[in-house]
Write a protein that binds this DNA or RNA. Structure first.
Length: 218
DNA sequence: ATTATGATCGTCT
DNA sequence: GACGATCATAATG
């Protein structure tokens, strides 16, 4: 391959996403997502709990927009944020639960030739820092909604390089093989269910968009 | 460094 | 017609 992906070229399977969203979300940290020549290592995600989560777009049942989340896991849900930014989620869990993981930030590993001319002054660590900018470097758009991220669509997700056993059962892909600590805290930019610490990030990673320290324990 | 504001449009009421 | 799972820019301490 020659682009640095060799150590991380294990596809995330549909079974990887067919687990509780609170298990999938932290397991996506350190994973890489690719669209064409652009590759990003994920450093920050948020879990959304579907029908039981007031902060989720799926909270009030299926609508034309949220319908994809009610379908099978491993597909992309792309929505327009504030009329400006296209943000990427991955559907998780069994059909009907409408759980998803919002990809919030990452480190660009490949594709600089394409990206750098378009944002010549943006600091390296900011290229995919925040869900809007991450969606931007991935060229996310509405037509991506419903496409699979397990190999057949424009977006492809690869398991973390440190989870290197190709035959491992998805349920065994845990933090035990991970070198980096994971922190968690409240999700960003929402007004309900703010008590749920469902935002996850790689501790001390400079590409994380929000607060990099977990809230103080009372 | 932090804070304020405009942009901009699909989605749902 | 109102409201965002946000970001860039400008103004201010």
């Amino acid at each position: 391959m020659g682009d640095g992906l060799a150590a991380a070229s294990h596809l995330c399977t549909a079974a990887f996403f067919d687990r509780p969203v609170l298990a999938v979300a932290p397991d996506l940290l350190g994973a890489t997502i690719r669209h064409g020549p652009v590759v990003v290592r994920l450093t920050e995600v948020e879990a959304y709990g579907g029908v039981d989560d007031p902060a989720s777009h799926a909270a009030r049942g299926p609508t034309p927009r949220s319908a994809v989340m009610f379908g099978p896991p491993g597909r992309a849900y792309v929505y327009l944020s504030y009329g400006v930014h296209w943000c990427v989620n991955i559907v998780c869990g069994p059909p009907g639960q409408a759980c998803a993981v919002l990809l919030r930030a990452g480190e660009v590993l490949a594709g600089h030739d394409l990206l750098r001319p378009r944002w010549p002054t943006l600091p390296e660590r900011d290229l995919a820092r925040g869900p809007g900018r991450l969606g931007r470097v991935l060229a996310a758009g509405p037509t991506m909604t419903g496409t699979s991220v397990t190999g057949d669509g424009p977006l492809t997700l690869y398991r973390p390089a440190l989870d290197a056993d190709p035959g491992a059962d998805p349920a065994a892909v845990t933090r035990t093989a991970r070198a980096t600590r994971i922190d968690s805290g409240p999700r960003i930019g929402i007004r309900s269910a703010t008590e749920r610490p469902w935002r996850f990030w790689l501790a001390d990673d400079p590409t994380v968009s929000g607060p990099r320290r977990p809230p103080a324990r009372p």
